[in-house]
Simulated scan of single mutants.
Amino acid sequence: MNATEWAEDQQRRAELDDLMAQVADQEAQMEHHLITTHNDYAVQINSEPTSDADLSRRVPPPYRPATRRISRGC
């Protein structure tokens, strides 16, 4: 491997590392959002009366994605 190829390889590895860091950040944000949503929902469920009539009227909270998706260039 000559110096040019080695430099290109290092550049590709750095780009891959950046992409992997972005994916990890997005996964962490999604996990945080899921945990927060679950906890909020659990608090809501536990604070409401639980008669059969109330259970039939309960509506789950709307889905809100934590972040925008990255275009994969398909």
Rank of each mutant, 00 (worst) to 15 (best):
H32P: 00
L16R: 13
Q10E: 12
A14S: 10
G73L: 08
G73K: 02
R72I: 14
V59G: 01
V43R: 11
Q26W: 03
N39Y: 03
E5T: 07
Q44Y: 04
D9Y: 04
A28Q: 08
R69T: 06
S71D: 15
Q10D: 09
A3R: 12
R72A: 07
R58S: 12
E27N: 13
Q22G: 05
V43Q: 08
V43H: 04
H38A: 15
D17P: 00
A21H: 04
A42N: 06
T36Q: 09
L16Q: 13
R64S: 14
R12F: 03
P65D: 05
Q11R: 15
T4I: 15
R72M: 13
R72K: 11
H33V: 00
D40G: 07
A14R: 08
D9L: 13
N2K: 02
Q11K: 14
Q26K: 10
P49S: 13
I35T: 10
L16E: 15
L19V: 04
D52L: 09
Q10F: 08
R12S: 13
R69W: 03
R69N: 03
M20H: 10
S56L: 09
T50S: 11
M1Y: 10
N39M: 08
T50L: 08
N39L: 12
E31G: 00
N39T: 10
V43L: 10
M1W: 06
T37W: 02
Q11C: 06
H33T: 01
L16V: 08
H32C: 06
A3Q: 14
L34K: 09
A3G: 00
D9M: 04
H32I: 01
E27A: 11
T4H: 10
R69L: 13
L34I: 02
A14N: 09
N46G: 12
S51N: 11
R12E: 12
V43A: 09
Q11S: 07
E5Q: 15
E15L: 15
H33P: 00
E48G: 05
R68W: 01
V59A: 08
C74Y: 09
P60Q: 07
Q29H: 04
D52P: 01
P65W: 01
A7Q: 14
L16P: 01
S51Y: 01
R12C: 04
R13E: 06
I45E: 03
L34R: 15
C74G: 10
M20F: 08
Q26F: 02
D25A: 11
P61E: 05
R69A: 14
S47G: 12
Y41W: 12
T36S: 14
G73R: 06
M30Q: 11
P61N: 03
R72C: 07
D25W: 06
V23T: 08
R12H: 11
R69I: 05
T36F: 01
E27I: 02
N39Q: 14
A66R: 00
H33K: 13
D54M: 05
R72N: 07
V59M: 09
M30P: 00
A3D: 11
I45G: 00
H33G: 01
E31F: 07
